[in-house]
Computed example of a mutant assay.
Amino acid sequence: MTEQVVVAAGPGAGPGTGAVLGYLDGRPIPRDRLDRRLDGLRRSSRAAALPVPESSEGRQLVRWVAQVILTEELCATLDAPAVDPGPLDPVAAVEYGSITAAAYEGSPAVRAAFAQVTGGVTVPEEEVRRYWEAWARPAPDRWRLRHRLDGGPWQPLGPVTLEELPRAVRAGVERGETRAGDPIGEHEWTVEEIIPGALPSFEDDAPAIRAALLAAARRRTFAHWLDRSRAERLTLVEGLEHPGDPRQPDNHHKH
């Protein structure tokens, strides 16, 4: 987590109870935005899964929602054209962390900011080639069978490599047989197709590799932009620190 300034919530205010959610470029963000978001969560179908409001976990939820809103506000200042680059896949959600992932999924402004900030990101072709050379492997022959066990119904099996078949079936296929027994039972099969293997082809593989590397590069660029912008432009208030800040009293995650 990037270091951020935290200021007191205000005279007489308890943790996170002031009128300000945080400051963006010195401009106060009203606390009522956070209160409305929390009220909506408490009234939603997910309410039963939320922590008790006054518990340590409940205060962490308040901090988490506050950071989501501040991320949305930060991205909205770009006034980027409305563009929807699509939902996050599971890998992207893990890479971003829950706060950024929630802001991205819930706010068009965050998705538009992503598109604008990362629109010029490219991947050098030599990086695509280097990745391919490191991971390219010949594709083995694969087999498609019709298989049944102990006289039961026939089921499709495959396409699989011979190494993925039960040992008795593999040995039988290699010998051109159609029946074999093992401790599991009596196997019967018919070979329906043999799909020849192939040597790797950079021309065939490059588009998918290029797309995956570009997506990863765009995620890194956006995450770095967010970290830098949060550190430079956001001021947090006492009680609404980042939930992962080790200095706040409800952070129980220790190493």
Rank of each mutant, 00 (worst) to 15 (best):
R33P: 05
R42K: 13
G181K: 07
G26S: 04
R175W: 12
T118W: 00
V62K: 08
R167Y: 12
L213K: 13
L78K: 02
A180M: 04
S98G: 10
D204P: 01
P156N: 12
R37L: 09
E188L: 05
D39W: 10
D32G: 07
R33I: 12
R42T: 12
D32L: 08
E241P: 10
P243F: 01
W154C: 01
H187R: 08
G26P: 01
R142W: 11
R43K: 15
P246V: 09
T77W: 04
G86W: 09
P249R: 13
F222R: 08
I194D: 02
A66K: 03
A80V: 04
A206L: 02
I99E: 04
V191S: 07
I209Q: 04
A93V: 07
H252A: 03
A101C: 11
L236Q: 00
L145A: 07
A217G: 08
R175V: 10
I99G: 00
T17R: 14
L74M: 09
E238R: 11
R59N: 06
T161I: 06
Q116L: 15
R220V: 12
G181T: 10
R230D: 00
A217L: 06
V20R: 09
W132M: 12
L61N: 02
P85E: 00
R36S: 13
R170Y: 03
M1A: 12
Y96P: 00
G58Y: 00
A112S: 11
A19C: 01
P156D: 15
P11E: 11
G18T: 10
P108N: 05
A13Q: 14
H252D: 07
